[in-house]
């Protein structure tokens, strides 16, 4: 398979051609219980999501704010394993063969599964974001993922120097995840102007799409970033909705409504 055939590439390429800012969602697998996840993924797609990020629950999520920490704890209380996360993706794929799925989590989870790359590819995973794996340490995993057509998606941060950004961009595949602020997920001090000017600088190092995450929680924040990014990532706000619980169908309906509102905000910016 060449890069052009990957779901992530096709999706972001189509978005670019249609002048559409990709909407990327994040929820934690198995939160608030194992039965919610696959239904929630379908609801998110129905509400206008282009790329799905699915968190692998981990006992020590160092970069997460309170919302996603709590989601990890809820999922782990149900004994969710990486193997079960892959089963959820496999089940999702029986009805949706188009929407890219990116797993996101911490390296120790993936290290514990010897044949992760093969099994993830078999389940229909398209990309992997490892919060605590910088490119300097990532070659071994990247080779295994690459052999299975899975993109290892690297992050750039406001503190990343130009020289380092150049090096990371050279290794990156799929898209670049730009961390919009110094802080943890769900933080609330997003500065759109700073993000916009930094993205403009970073684009000289790579033609890869930039998806921006951390601190985007509603239609207004998504709309403000849409003109500057190829994609925006919404996480903690959706996780908070999952946390409210209720019947699986009710949670799905709320999630779909919430993401559709954000989609409308982005569309308004895209067509402005």
């Amino acid at each position: 398979m060449s890069e052009a055939d990957t779901r992530i590439h096709q999706c972001l390429d189509a978005c670019r051609q249609n002048n559409r800012t990709a909407l990327v969602s994040f929820i934690t697998a198995g939160d608030p219980g194992p039965s919610y996840t696959v239904a929630a993924l379908h609801s998110l797609v129905a509400g206008g999501v282009d790329i799905l990020e699915l968190g692998i629950p981990f006992s020590d999520p160092e970069a997460e704010g309170p919302s996603i920490q709590a989601a990890n704890e809820r999922a782990l209380a149900h004994g969710i394993t990486l193997a079960q996360v892959l089963q959820m993706v496999e089940e999702f794929r029986t009805q949706d063969t188009q929407t890219p799925v990116v797993l996101m989590g911490y390296l120790n989870s993936v290290l514990a599964m010897e044949d992760f790359a093969e099994r993830a590819a078999g389940a229909g995973v398209d990309g992997l974001i490892m919060v605590n794996l910088p490119p300097e340490e990532g070659d071994h995993l990247q080779q295994k993922l690459s052999a299975n057509n899975i993109d290892l998606i690297y992050l750039l941060a406001p503190t990343t120097t130009d020289e380092r950004a150049r090096q990371i961009a050279a290794k990156a595949s799929g898209f670049i995840y730009y961390v919009s602020l110094k802080g943890i997920t769900g933080a609330s001090h997003l500065q759109t102007d700073e993000v916009a000017s930094r993205l403009q600088q970073l684009r000289q190092y790579t033609g890869l799409p930039f998806c921006v995450g951390f601190g985007i929680k509603d239609a207004t924040t998504a709309q403000s970033l849409a003109p500057h990014a190829d994609g925006v990532v919404v996480g903690s706000a959706l996780v908070n909705t999952m946390a409210e619980g209720g019947e699986v169908s009710e949670v799905g309906a709320r999630l779909q409504q919430q993401i559709a509102t954000i989609r409308q905000g982005i569309d308004a910016a895209d067509h402005a």
Partner: peptide, 19 residues
């Protein structure tokens, strides 16, 4: 680069690398 044989290294969120 901070390795003691196979161990050590720097496995952190990108934001901290500069610090």
């Amino acid at each position: 680069d901070g390795h003691f044989g196979d161990y050590g290294g720097r496995f952190v969120a990108e934001t901290l690398t500069h610090a």
